[in-house]
Design a binder for these strands. Structure first.
Lengths: 352, 352
DNA sequence: TTGAAAAGTGTGTACGTACACAAAATTAAA
DNA sequence: TTTAATTTTGTGTACGTACACACTTTTCAA
């Protein structure tokens, strides 16, 4: 551990004053070519790295971050993302971060549009964190943010036709392939269940997962098209009837996946039907899904790292506003964890 | 985000000087009961939290940490632990940490004893990080450290009869159960392979994993005792002969696990034997194992989070020496990740 | 050649904590 | 009661960076 050189020492090395070194580091301009070269050489030689602690002490600015994500439900996916936000905010509690939360209902485009318009009204806005569900509204928002020069980062899913500064997601195509691996299905008897969505198109994540699963099946010589069924995400009674009807009509089904986080609805229905012979692979480490995994009605959960997404988003922005000058684009693809009943106890909601 | 109160503000609230507040926070003594109560009340009310940045600026001490772990092999388990150390040291590069590495050969007790005795000779030793392999030498070391009042933390495995300040491990019993889940073996045809160890007893981690697997089998109605085979960990030619002989003598074997990180040796042998019908579940995200997973000769890897262990160990110590006064014992059981060929690309060596 | 204006450079203070030291208050001893 | 010893409390400076401001040098038009 070599001792870190200070700005003062760099200044001495380059034969200038600390102020000049500071101007070069933050390129505040007004420095002659001659000294710039000398200082940059010294900086290089000493391997100078700004002392984050001291830097934080002197830095007085308030960073305003607006965040627009689907509303969190206790124990649900977005509450884990929020847990990640909170962890990061706690860690950076010495930095003055103004946090403007503008959640929306992920099943209601209007609510999303309204949240997005509030984002644009936030005063002194420095950056935006977006957990996108709807494509067009998000594209519009991003275009406006681009023209205002305000950086934005995506968590959970990325929207095409936008220019985010950073993206924190999981590879959904891989998720789909892992479904295939875990189901270990035979030629026929596979079904893909999904929740119905009013108005809007299917979520991009779920489309990409399905593509991954189908690719896996093709690679493993399964040519029979999986059976499909849609069920309600809001009306549980209706959902149970729809799912029940589907399984009665297709008694050969033995391998099932639900490509979003509502797998527990299917699990509970299958349990009521006494169908313990069905292997069910679902998504996300939510409270309901964990319960079903515990009970044995879900075989396995494929989990993203929502807390890591939230944590990293803030970490990135703080780092950007704090230490870096220029834009440093970054896409972080987080691991996909496979959780069985057995290793469930060692995962926590805040898994990062 | 409520503004953090500073020591100065706390002092004002309690009607004392900042120095008094400081003495109370660090219990440097010499404070009257009357003011202690007043200040503690103010501290409580304001929810005071020391500003880590400023704290780091004023704190000038050098922390000396000795670390004794098995020597890292490029791409191996302990190199990931070291990656975690390095990440943490980089993150805390503003803090003056003196880092004394004293690695030993994990297959040689003498080398371990020698490393441990060097630990005790380190000047101004503040804390020790131990990656233990041998029980008795470690117990002896810990007893001495206890009497010297020097804190130590364990990574990877904990040793009984010691009093570590913190422990960063995975639950090996769960690991074993997950092996059972992934193998999905039938009544007979299961084998447990292990590397031979000269002189010393089997590693505690591997014993605990076996126990977990056997418990899983019992719970799932498999009563046939698994077949066993030991092979050399140093002489690959010998190992391949031993493994080959075992499979020729036991042609019914279809499900195999290797309870330490040397699974790739078995995988490569099986590949040469053309036995693609054997499902092999191995441990640890090492370069060799990743290659076999990629090639398909390993079905699945059960991975601990060595980088997280290393990172957390240093994080804990820095936190302790930096912010906390008293001892705060902590056992962190890290998640166990299941890696298939499909989700391999989204895990990195530095997975935390 | 002169003298603004502009460009370049140095100085000094603030940030909040840690800690040394000086000052004040209290206690104990004579 | 007085004085010394002791305990308690306040003050001031350092840490390394950020940034405002003052000062010096250069540039360039008149």
């Amino acid at each position: 551990m070599a001792k870190q050189a200070s700005i003062k020492e760099i200044a001495q090395m380059a034969g200038v004053s600390p102020g000049t070194v500071d101007r070069i580091i933050h390129n505040r301009g007004k420095v002659s070519e001659k000294r710039r070269i000398a200082v940059e050489k010294a900086l290089e030689e000493a391997g100078y790295k700004t002392n984050i602690h001291t830097s934080a002490v002197s830095y007085r600015k308030t960073i305003t971050i607006a965040v627009s994500c689907p509303m969190a439900i206790e124990g649900g996916y977005w509450s884990s993302v929020e847990k990640g936000f909170q962890d990061a905010l706690d860690e950076f509690s010495d930095i003055d971060i103004r946090w403007v939360a503008l959640p929306y209902d992920q099943f209601d485009v209007d609510s999303c549009n309204s949240a997005y318009s509030k984002v644009l009204e936030v005063e002194n806005l420095d950056a935006v964190i977006i957990g996108a569900t709807f494509e067009e509204p998000t594209q519009e928002l991003c275009t406006k943010l681009d023209s205002m020069g305000i950086p934005y980062v995506f968590v959970d899913s990325s929207i095409k036709g936008t220019a985010p500064w950073a993206v924190f997601v999981s590879d959904q195509h891989i998720c789909g392939q892992v479904v295939g691996r875990l189901l270990d299905a035979e030629e026929s008897g596979l079904a893909i269940l999904a929740t119905r969505r009013r108005g809007s198109k299917r979520a991009t994540n779920s489309i990409e997962r399905e593509r991954g699963l189908l690719d896996f099946l093709k690679d493993h010589g399964i040519t029979t098209e999986p059976k499909r069924c849609q069920f309600s995400s809001t009306d549980i009674t209706l959902a149970e009837r729809e799912i029940g009807d589907f399984f009665r009509e297709n008694p050969e089904i033995r391998w099932v996946t639900v490509l979003n986080s509502r797998g527990y609805i299917v699990a509970d229905t299958l349990k009521k039907l006494g169908r313990s012979d069905v292997r069910l692979v679902c998504f996300d480490f939510t409270a309901d899904n964990r319960r079903c995994l515990e009970e044995g009605s879900i075989y396995s959960l494929i989990c993203q790292r929502p807390a890591a997404q939230g944590y990293n988003a803030i970490h990135y922005l703080v780092e950007h506003f704090f230490y870096k000058v220029g834009r440093k684009e970054k896409t972080t693809t987080l691991p996909i964890d496979v959780v069985f009943k057995e290793n469930l106890p060692c995962y926590r909601e805040s898994n990062r």
